[in-house]
Design a protein around this nucleic acid. Sequence first.
RNA 1: CGGGGAGUAGCUCAGCUUGGCUAGAGCGCUGCGUUCGGGACGCAGAGGUCGCAAGUUCAAAUCUUGUCUCCCCGACCA
Length: 579
Amino acid sequence: MRYSRTFIPTVKEIPADAEVASHQLMIRAGLCRKVASGTYTYLPLGWRSLLKIIEIVREEMNRAGAQEIIVPSMQPLELWDRTGRSVDYGPTMFRFEDRHGRMNALGPTAEEVFTTMIAGEVKSYKQLPINLYQITPKFRDEFRPRFGAIRSREFIMKDAYSFDVDAEGLDKSYQAMYDAYCRIFKRCGLEYVIVEAESGEMGGSGSHQFTVPCESGEDTIVYAEDGSYAANLERAAVDPLPKEEADAAIPPAEEVHTPNVGTIEAVCGFLGSRPNDMIKTLIYSAGERTIAALVRGDHELNTEKLTQIIGGEHIDLAAELTIEEVTGAKVGFAGPMGIADKVSKMIIDHAVAAMAVGITGANKTDYHIKNVVPGRDFPLEGENVIVADIRFAGEGDTHNGKKLLFKKGIEVGQVFKLGTKYSAKLGAKFLDEQGHENPCIMGCYGIGVNRIFASAIELGNDSNGIIWPISIAPCEVIVTSVNQDDEQVARTAEDIYKQLLGNGIEVLLDDRVLRGGVKFKDADLLGIPIRVNVGQKSLADGNVEVKLRCESESSKINIRDATAKVVELVNKLKEQLKV
RNA sequence: CGGGGAGUAGCUCAGCUUGGCUAGAGCGCUGCGUUCGGGACGCAGAGGUCGCAAGUUCAAAUCUUGUCUCCCCGACCA
């Protein structure tokens, strides 16, 4: 590639609407341009990087026995209705009507399409297992697209779906993907951590998340100080707190008038109490059922954990009307006393059960109750009462007695054991050896290609620009002709360029007629791992300079040895990313 | 969707409070010259429906209303 003929619009100024390093550098290095919020055009160098990531993903998926296919991004909404995910995904899914009045969706993922296809073709256990994947654009109408490629509305995702005859088969398929993911991220030069994750509305029983630790990440990973445990924030399990002992006998529960103070903060201000003296009662709807969930006033309810406990059904905060119906009071005055009979389940966080005494809503508008003793004034056990871990882990929490620490990260991939949620609903069934019909046991496995791209930049950059891992850099080497209008310099640069090409190296030749300084700045901004400077200064001694982007010093190499030396360097850098 | 901020040259921004003559700067771009190893300098130029639409006014980038877009902070996910 000749720089003079390649479309690489670099920018000196920091774009006003880019916040994080990867977003700024993507724009500045001429890798991409924004079209609209959350949608980007990838320019030649950006696309080259993405293609290299895609190729690594493809190689490892194929190696793991998965087969690449491609399914439509435009999918009939009816498929999504059949699994109920049309509702669960809600407005996050782009929908539109075609000229015949059919509703369609732009695929945010593709379980339905893959599973339906398998349902039509696979009839016998002899055809299984099978693992299919695609690498295609996905569409999600996010609440808030942000951080450039980290959270966009259209992005490239590799999604794979495995179909097995039994749980053991799924375990194997899952492990193969898990291992493939480790290879993929290693080869892409990313540091990553694997944490336990919730499968959420994907359904299913097990999940791991691959996360690149960095400040601009939107995910929080939680890990034990001794490394014995790691999970994402949605999943991270916390130990129950020790039961508090009351200093003295607690007087009977007593109603207090708290006019217009419905929030924890307001009640504390009004009664002079602390948030951790409070018991929050939240009312959720799960289909037709109503759930009461109790957490301590200073804790935050984790809806993922709650979802798991009630069996995976989609839940939402109940509508105002439902809350008033259940509690008999306006929103803000719900409490646990006497409510167990009015809801289908009452779920109590461990920390609430451990309280000696607390303040709660009175289920009566403008009233709270103090001196409420869990177990005395409301049940901690019973047919529909469960004490469980339903809050987010926080500072000071432990897991198996080990202190929990928190770190930000970018989720670049996740693997799920799905089970039969989709196969059962969509009829992906097979006959086993006994002639019995069973639904396929499924797994699904996603990788965010653009997120690998963005996190590589987040991890690899300095004040001058990007520092790419060689495996996914747009080019491996840049040959900078420092004085392009000097015939000897230009010819030498050209020679080295051609020799490197001849050795199978991906090279960008900066043959532009510009001052040296400008070219150096651009080279650093682009982040190409190896730079060869060809200029009058060193040429006078028969040398060129070779410099690694990740190091500050360059070394002089005799022109005759230059190509061999660079090839050796390329191989050395690649070697470090081999698996 | 709630809360905050911003839309003026390709980019980064000033001007708006207190309406007024030809709408500005830096960077970038074009031409000429001098330069030429870490984003050079001089001269000459090109480039603007001031987001859009109404309204107020003799007069609107500036005031009013509406609207669209973008960014930041919160609930979803690759």
